[in-house]
Nucleic acid binder design. Structure first.
Lengths: 221, 221
DNA sequence: GCAAAAGTGTTCCAGATACACCCATGT
DNA sequence: ACATGGGTGTATCTGGAACACTTTTGC
C-alpha cells in the first residue's frame, strides 16, 4: 500500500497509433478485457510507472501493443475531467504515434481481448473520452501535414514519390496535383534519390527516395 | 491519509502568465516560500484537487495570484520527468495565460514570499524545470501570433491599431510595416471600429477598435 | 508653427496554382 | 500494341513585401 497525506490521482498514458494501410488511414484499438467499458474498443495505454518518464511510458505501451520502437511519437494533450473514469480520478497524458506501413505486426496484447486496426472513417464507439482524444490527434495530424515533414513518418526507409503523395491524399481526403507536389516536396531538400527503382506492375518503374534525416520532423513553413 | 494499491504521482498545474507592460513582454513569477528551491522564483501553480478539472485548477491558481478571471488560458504541455521534483514524483500540466495590460493587479500571494512581473528577456534563475516550461510557452506564443488572433488577448476592450501593432512588435522583437499591418489585420474581419477616438498627446487622435468576438481566438491561416 | 503619432495606395516579386503529354514497363 | 502508373515545364494568379507623404492634434 502507498499512502499520501493528500489524495493523488492516477496517471496514465494513452496512445493514438496511426498507420496507412490498404489506402486508408487506420488506427490501432484494443478491446477492453475488464470493467469499466468491458468489451468496448479503446486506445492502448496504461499507468505511468513511478520511475519512468511520460514519453517512456507511452513508448513502452506502444511497443507492447505493436512491437515497434523508434517511431515518431509526440505528446498530444492531457485529459483530466474528474469523471472521465468511474473507478477513480485518472488523468491521462495522450500521445500519438505514426507507424510506417511496413512495420505493422501486431503483438498478442497482454491485458486486452483483441487488437485491431480500424479505418479512421469507420471507428466503433470508444471507451471513456477516447473519441475526443482521437479527434484531437487527427486534427493535429492534418495540421502538421501542412507545415511539417511529418508525412515521411508513414513511409518505409525507401519509397516512391507517388507513395508519398498517396499519404497526403489519404489524410487530406483530397487530390493533389502530381507536378506541383513533386516540385514542392523536392524543393524542401529533405529527400535524396537512391539509385534503386521500384518495379511493381505493367508500367514504368518508379525512382526510390529516402529521407535525409529519418526520424526528424522539420517545420517547413 | 489516502492509500492506493499502486503508487500515484502528485499532479499539479503551473501557469505561465504573460502580459505586456511598459513596452515589454512580462511574466508573473512567485518567490518560493518553502523547500525545495526556497527563495527561488517559480511559476505560480499548485496541486490539482480531486474534484476539479485541470483547466479549472489552472484558473483557480491564476485567480489566486492575479485576481483576474475570464482571460485566455490554454494547455501547453505536460512535464513529468521523474526527477523534476526532489520530494516526490510530481507531474505538472502546464498552461499559459494572457492578461490584458489593463487588468494587471497583483494579489497578496498566499504561499509565496513575493510576486513580481519580470521582463521575458531578463528572467532570474527559475526553480525546478520552469525554464523549460517558460521557453515552450514563449515558443507557442510566438508561433500563434502568426496564425491566430491570439494577440487581441493582450489588449483591453477597446484599443487602437497602433496598440495592436505594438503587441506584435514587442513579441516578435521586430518592426512591422504600418500600412501592411493595418491592411492585413482589418482584412481579417475580426475587428469593428467604434466611434470613439483615443487622445493622448500632441498628435492626431487614434480610432478605437474592438474585437467582434472577444475571448475567441481564431485560426487565420 | 512644430513635434508627434495617425492614417492612407500602389508597385513589385515570389511562391502557389492550373494544366497535358511522353516514357518505361508487363502482359 | 495496349494498358498502367512514372515523370516532366510553363504560364498565370495571388498574396506578401516594400515604400513616403498628408492629417490632426497639443503645446
Amino acid at each position: 500500500m502507498y499512502s499520501y497525506r493528500y489524495p493523488h490521482p492516477a496517471v496514465t498514458t494513452d496512445i493514438v497509433i496511426f498507420t496507412i494501410r490498404d489506402g486508408q488511414l487506420k488506427l490501432l484499438l484494443i478491446k477492453r478485457g475488464g470493467e469499466p467499458h468491458q468489451g468496448r474498443w479503446a486506445l492502448p495505454g496504461g499507468f505511468v510507472e513511478m520511475d519512468e518518464d511520460l514519453e517512456t511510458s507511452a513508448r513502452r505501451e506502444l511497443e507492447e501493443e505493436t512491437g515497434v520502437s523508434g517511431v515518431y511519437l509526440e505528446q498530444l494533450y492531457t485529459f483530466g475531467r474528474p469523471d472521465r473514469d468511474p473507478r477513480e480520478r485518472v488523468i491521462t497524458v495522450a500521445y500519438y504515434a505514426l507507424i510506417p506501413s511496413d512495420q505493422v505486426r501486431l503483438q498478442a496484447a497482454t491485458d486486452a481481448e483483441a487488437v485491431g486496426w480500424f479505418a479512421f472513417e469507420e471507428l466503433p464507439p470508444l471507451a471513456f473520452d477516447h473519441d475526443a482524444i482521437v479527434a484531437m490527434a487527427h486534427q493535429r495530424l492534418v495540421a502538421k501535414l501542412d507545415y511539417s515533414t511529418i508525412a515521411f513518418q508513414f513511409l518505409p526507409r525507401e519509397f516512391t514519390l507517388s507513395e508519398l503523395q498517396d499519404v497526403y491524399e489519404i489524410i487530406l481526403r483530397a487530390e493533389v496535383d502530381k507536378r506541383n507536389f513533386r516540385k514542392q516536396v523536392l524543393a524542401l531538400g529533405k529527400l535524396v534519390e537512391t539509385k534503386k527503382m521500384k518495379r511493381d506492375g505493367a508500367h514504368r518503374p518508379a525512382r526510390l527516395y529516402r529521407v535525409k534525416s529519418p526520424g526528424k520532423v522539420d517545420i517547413i513553413k
